[in-house]
Design a protein around this nucleic acid. Structure first.
Lengths: 131, 131
DNA sequence: CCAGTTGTATTAATTCAATAATACAATTTG
DNA sequence: CAAATTGTATTATTGAATTAATACAACTGG
């Protein structure tokens, strides 16, 4: 499992796990039905406490990214007829409208907003062990 | 000074003070050059610790909303200061982080997000009549 | 001038989220 | 069926953020 934890970057460990698994799913590196490593296995691999992984998995379950089968493991959920791209774009557009409106009100130029989006995209991108 | 503090709503007291003063300034109820109540006076009025007000004032100073004249009091600054911009960008960045994270999860590419931002910017731009 | 008022500094107490240690419960067959 | 493996629950520890207690320094303004 391609996850990398950086202690002391301010982001809680469990959140790093959540975000990176989300990313893996979004990127298609983890597909529906696929089993995630058992809590203890992943914890061992990342050198973190099993409870921390458990918390991340719980978070992912609530989010609907993952499904737990008690003693049989944790699996990536069928993103249940994932929203058509158009739907996703629609949802995203609402969020963008809020952003743009606020930027306008704050008198921040479009170019600056675009730059920020790029910067934050890079910043939030989990360290990709590219291969 | 029209500020109301609600303990135990999860928002730190100093932040409540900061936000409400920001609002008062934004709403024009506090204008440039106007003096804020001395730390102890406001603390007394709100039934909170003077240090808490001090922290709020410090925050507002860093933000550029307010200016301190050591022993002569604290005054609303002439807005548009460069520091105010930094604060606005900070607020905007939080919003952008949420956007980028959601786009990642939805598997929408950065380029598409950028395009959307541009499009919506144009769409939401009020008819420009003023600089 | 100099008393009173201003913001500041230092330190401590408190609270809360994050992480960890450990024992438990369930159920699959790793 | 029993053993091994799964996630769960409970409790403790840690560290950072918030609030507080208290003493300080400096300037204003009568």
């Amino acid at each position: 499992m391609l996850i990398h934890i950086s202690t002391n970057d301010g982001v809680p460990i469990y959140l790093q796990v959540v975000n990176q698994i989300k990313y893996l799913v979004a990127a298609g590196r983890l597909t529906a039905g696929e089993e995630l490593p058992p809590i203890r296995v992943l914890a061992n691999q990342l050198l973190i406490n099993p409870n921390t992984v458990a918390r991340a998995y719980r978070e992912l379950e609530v989010t609907g990214i993952v499904e737990k089968r008690r003693t049989a493991g944790t699996y990536v959920t069928d993103q249940g007829s994932p929203l058509a791209r158009r739907e996703r774009v629609k949802i995203l557009t609402e969020r963008i409208d809020g952003l743009v409106a606020e930027a306008l009100q704050m008198n921040i130029a479009l170019e600056d907003v675009l730059k920020l989006v790029e910067q934050r995209h890079i910043a939030l991108q989990p360290a990709l062990t590219k291969e």
